[in-house]
C-alpha cells in the first residue's frame, strides 16, 4: 500500500474562458455500500467538507434522516445543510470516514476542507510545479 500519492493540478476553464489550475482529487465515496466516483477540490480554506445534494442522493443518502442544524457561510448560506458520514478512498491509501456538510445546493463543487479531510490526510501543495501530494495520517 502506498505511503503517499502525487497528483497533477487540473486545468479548468473559468467563466470568462481564462485558464485555472486547481488541486482536484479523484476519489471513491461509499455510503451504506453504494460506491460513487467523484472529483473533489481540496480547499484548505474551507472549515468543513461539502457534499453537493446530487452526490449525496447518488450515494443513497437519506436527506430526511440526515443530521440537521448545520449552517454554512458564503453562497452556501442560502441553502440548508445537513450532516452525513461517508467513507472515502483515495487511490490505494487506506479508506477513511469523512463527515460532510450535505448541502441542498445542486450546482456546487465537492469540497474537502479542514473537518475532517485535513485531519485524515496531510496535503502538500507544490503549485509552482503544478502538483500536490496526499499522505495518509495512518
Amino acid at each position: 500500500m502506498a505511503d503517499f500519492l502525487r497528483f497533477s493540478y487540473s486545468e479548468t476553464r473559468g467563466s470568462s474562458g481564462e485558464t485555472l489550475f486547481r488541486p482536484i482529487l479523484p476519489v471513491i465515496l461509499t455510503h451504506r455500500g453504494t460506491p460513487y466516483t467523484a472529483h473533489a477540490i481540496i480547499d484548505s480554506g474551507a472549515d468543513v467538507n461539502v457534499l453537493p445534494y446530487p452526490i449525496g442522493i447518488g450515494l443513497g443518502g437519506n436527506w430526511e434522516q440526515a443530521r440537521t442544524g448545520l449552517t454554512l457561510s458564503g453562497n452556501l448560506a442560502n441553502y440548508e445543510a445537513r450532516g452525513i458520514l461517508v467513507n472515502c478512498t483515495v487511490g490505494d491509501l487506506p479508506s477513511v470516514q469523512l463527515a460532510f456538510a450535505w448541502t441542498r445546493a445542486e450546482h456546487v463543487p465537492l469540497l474537502f476542507g479542514q473537518v475532517n479531510f485535513f485531519m485524515e490526510f496531510d496535503v502538500c501543495f507544490f503549485r509552482a510545479r503544478s502538483m500536490f501530494e496526499i499522505r495518509s495520517r495512518s
Binding site: V50, A101, G113
Partner: peptide, 10 residues
C-alpha cells in the same frame, strides 16, 4: 462556495 466561517457546522 468555500465555507470559511462555519465553525458551528464543523
Amino acid at each position: 462556495w468555500s465555507p470559511y466561517e462555519s465553525a458551528g457546522a464543523a
